[in-house]
Design a protein around this nucleic acid. Sequence first.
DNA 1: TACTAGTCAATAAA
DNA 2: TTTATTGACTAGTA
Length: 357
Amino acid sequence: MELTMENIGNMHGVASHSHSQAGDLMNSSHGRPTSASHRNLVSHGRSAMVSSMASILEGAGEYRSDPALSGHLHPAMTMCESGMSLSNTYTTLTPLQHLPPISTVSDKFHHAHPHSHPHHHAAHQRLATGNVSGSFTLMRDDRGLASMGNLYGHYPKEMSGMGQPLSPLSNGLGSLHNSQQALSAYGPGAHLPNDKMLSPSGFESHAAMLSRSEEHLARSLGGHGHGMISNLNGMHPHSHLHTQANGSMLADRERHGGGGAQSGGSGQVEEINTKEVAQRITAELKRYSIPQAIFAQRILCRSQGTLSDLLRNPKPWSKLKSGRETFRRMWKWLQEPEFQRMSALRLAGKSSTPSHG
DNA sequence: TACTAGTCAATAAA
DNA sequence: TTTATTGACTAGTA
């Protein structure tokens, strides 16, 4: 565990100076967005998490709410530069170098927009952190998610609107309410190739698989997890909460992969329910008052407009090509525990204030 | 060459 | 201030 921290810290060190576009975002793009909205949350004193998240967006260097967090936890940091940072985050659990995800894509970043995005050069600096696997996945849940539950449970506005009992792992699944119908209207053809992820049969299948992944968390969660697992296993196809935690967004990925497709359900994914991911991301962003621009830049390495479009008009996984990477990142981000998500956002912000000191 | 997919930057709208 | 929309560009492929 400690080793992990060291590794992470190591990553941190490496990444902290490899940033550039993220910093560029904060420095030149908006400076300090959401300062008003998020403060709203903070003022509520909902949770250190919220304040953290808020501070992340606020000063990008003010993040002082949680020393433990700001201390050394940024495995997910700027996935843009580090690219596979997140993937590695899970490597500890399973060999997920299965697909050529972020690394491959980030590889494109170099030449993606050499004219307008010269700062992308940082992308290839993606540290060869193949060993920097952050096994936080297990260690943090115990306390991390525990507070997460409260965190979400404290959320006022969304909660009032959602009116649904969020489990510690719900991770803001409030959006699922919408997703339900959204799924129905998923594109012109509701019966797309990836429709299987929604089909009852497929549901049970992947639901079972998911249970495995969730089980990991459950174990860490202790008692909390059981309920979740039960839910996942039950995965009532008729229930409005059909989409459970992280896994539910995934199509029956391991179904055909088994071991190759990240049995842990934390890293690699064969298929992602883009609609669900979009819904959840949207919900999370709202929950934390995270501007699309910030999330898009720091987590996805995309522009605000792109993110907006993806969130509003997510294409079916089967129709995606290189665009899958973007959704993978979103998905991975959702997989992250709250504090790690913050780290990801904060990281960029942290490095975005080099000239500050 | 034409088409598709993914993205960005600018701009409009809330 | 943030989000949504749009036109244009680039890359990959048939």
